[in-house]
Design a protein around this nucleic acid. Sequence first.
DNA 1: GATGAATGAGCTTTCATTCAT
DNA 2: CATGAATGAAAGCTCATTCAT
Lengths: 216, 216, 216, 216
Amino acid sequence: MPAARPRQAPVRTPKQGRSKATVAAILEAAARILAEQGWAGFNTNAVAARAGVSIGSLYEYFPDKQALADEIANAHIAQGEALLTAAAVEIADADSAGALVDALVQGLVDLHRDDPRLHRVLSSEVPLSASARARVEALRRGAILFLEQALAAHVDHPGVAAQLLVDTADAVIHRWFVEDDGTLASPERLTQELRRMLRAYLAAPLSSASHPTGSA
Amino acid sequence: MPAARPRQAPVRTPKQGRSKATVAAILEAAARILAEQGWAGFNTNAVAARAGVSIGSLYEYFPDKQALADEIANAHIAQGEALLTAAAVEIADADSAGALVDALVQGLVDLHRDDPRLHRVLSSEVPLSASARARVEALRRGAILFLEQALAAHVDHPGVAAQLLVDTADAVIHRWFVEDDGTLASPERLTQELRRMLRAYLAAPLSSASHPTGSA
Amino acid sequence: MPAARPRQAPVRTPKQGRSKATVAAILEAAARILAEQGWAGFNTNAVAARAGVSIGSLYEYFPDKQALADEIANAHIAQGEALLTAAAVEIADADSAGALVDALVQGLVDLHRDDPRLHRVLSSEVPLSASARARVEALRRGAILFLEQALAAHVDHPGVAAQLLVDTADAVIHRWFVEDDGTLASPERLTQELRRMLRAYLAAPLSSASHPTGSA
Amino acid sequence: MPAARPRQAPVRTPKQGRSKATVAAILEAAARILAEQGWAGFNTNAVAARAGVSIGSLYEYFPDKQALADEIANAHIAQGEALLTAAAVEIADADSAGALVDALVQGLVDLHRDDPRLHRVLSSEVPLSASARARVEALRRGAILFLEQALAAHVDHPGVAAQLLVDTADAVIHRWFVEDDGTLASPERLTQELRRMLRAYLAAPLSSASHPTGSA
DNA sequence: GATGAATGAGCTTTCATTCAT
DNA sequence: CATGAATGAAAGCTCATTCAT
């Protein structure tokens, strides 16, 4: 990363149609390269070339490489927000703990099925900006808080339960659908079993269970 | 005229005390830099400088940057293998599903508590060698297969159950202890609840539940 | 994180005047350094500096150091091909063995008089690419085969005679004009005597001479 | 080529048997590497390793890499001197121009048959010291002057003839036996023809031939 | 004398970024 | 606004040479 870093403000917000198309082409090319080659293969010259745009134009719209990555991350996060918002409607409508689990799991599966390669790269390789990280975290918290409301009627300590449900479903679905170590049981079969587990948890009576030695 | 050319025999294996200390210093510095700055900040000059060693010495013992990363990954994986082997003894001795879950969860917590920053970088940023990846995958499979045996007495389809348990516990513990988004419920509280969930799952009667719409 | 990684598309072919001048400056500087300092002193930083160009520009047009050397070698070989093609016309027109010898010798002298220092370095120090080597060899064979036709009318075994003539003239002229040990007889005087020798050979009756002990 | 260059004088001349053996091992290894990998693969660490000697010991006997190369060159040149001295006896005994040519050619063939790979590397890739170059040149001049005496009885301008004979025979034999482009006529067949040519030259009447257009 | 660990100047190559046109 | 040639800091790696043991 050579030459100065005054960070003026070239980020001309695209207003005309032509600019919009250029920006879109750049973002598309950048997302494709990120998904296919990972962060290591992500370089501005390659992005510009793939977008069919000069490197100068790229810098006309993005002040630096990081800004480009941030924009892609933001767009991806926005999609996640939309999907989870949709799932929230389902969850709010759920008339049973089972339906609620199904809606949650389905929402997260949808979330991870959209461009899993890009998802993987964004979630592990790309150095996200603080604001992007905050936005992801806010989404998670929103989901947890929302679920907490829905769980209030079903369990005793809905806050912890909500976090357990969201984190568990998200983490394992991420692993099965995005990391894809392949082999062993199929993601679909595992997802089905995941739902069983989450339902069993919600249905379980309050154990006196902080004692690790307690029996099931 | 440096650079290129096949090579004749790098990686001089440390024979005497002095070299051993050098190698140790290099590995230590490399692990620290990896943990603190991530893969992006991991460069051979920085490692050598931090180890208080010349760049030439580094290349005396490691043929290239990747080999250095590999060695650190391998050492880390070896620790993981040791910890899980110890947990396996506990699991084998478990006289109930609850005890089994406790042993599994505890083993994974121990695994993730050891140098979590390095763990995070190794598991997401560092491009692991094929053999390191294979070794991690083998460890996971070993754990699943081993747990499958232990579960045979308790559940119906122990293979899927074993994978669900291992992947779930590993994924959420990784998130809580390593990713550390902070706030909300504490890792300890969540881990306790995780155990409750896993026990509930193992105790649950066989639902006729392959139908996602089925209620709990 | 430089070094390594497949590459996407170096060697931007010069499209505009500016780049053409840059490429020319690089090639010129490279040839000069090669001629003056030999392969040992030929490094990309020195070439770029001498060309008055940044190191980055050099790599904009040449994927690596070897490609730069190859280009110089190819240009030099192309000149050689042109000169020998011209000599071939003379040879074809020759109405006597003497005229033929004169044309051959003159062609080779011309060939070695063009930038003899560069010629020397290219022919002995530079590790030529396989294709460059093949091209040189093809040129030599072409010359021999062509001369074989021309000699068919004058000698008994024109194939061997042609190779002897071409290799002899080339080797000694190379030594006198390129290696330039200086002193003793002058290249010009020697070349004259060389012509005498080649003519005498072509005029010589077929000796029963496969016996090394035969007297002249 | 890093670190200083005070050039003290560590060249401890080997006196004891052990040292002699060490020096011999180093020279042998160095010559082998030079012959097999060329100057590019010739590095002091590799030489020491191949000689089964520590790098420190190598520098005990040779002040630097160049000195090592010089010693090998000198040994090789000494062999050449011996072979040509032997040939000189034959030449002095020759009772005809033909016998003389045969002795000259045979001497040069012998010279080039001894370790041709090393010969090639020494004569083209290795940057010889000025003294080594002078020694080679002296050998050539000696050969020419000696031959001049022998030719005085046979030709008109023995100086030029001697140089033509020596340079021609040396250059083409070098090409055929050392450069070995392979294919076409065999070195042996060509050598036979070479003798024919040299004899024809010596037998040729004095042409009025400084005029290139003169016929044979 | 011997050893071999250590050194670091120097070389190749990459890629984010600038700016003249 | 667009272009793309040019830049150069930075990183990977080599190998001749030194010197403490």
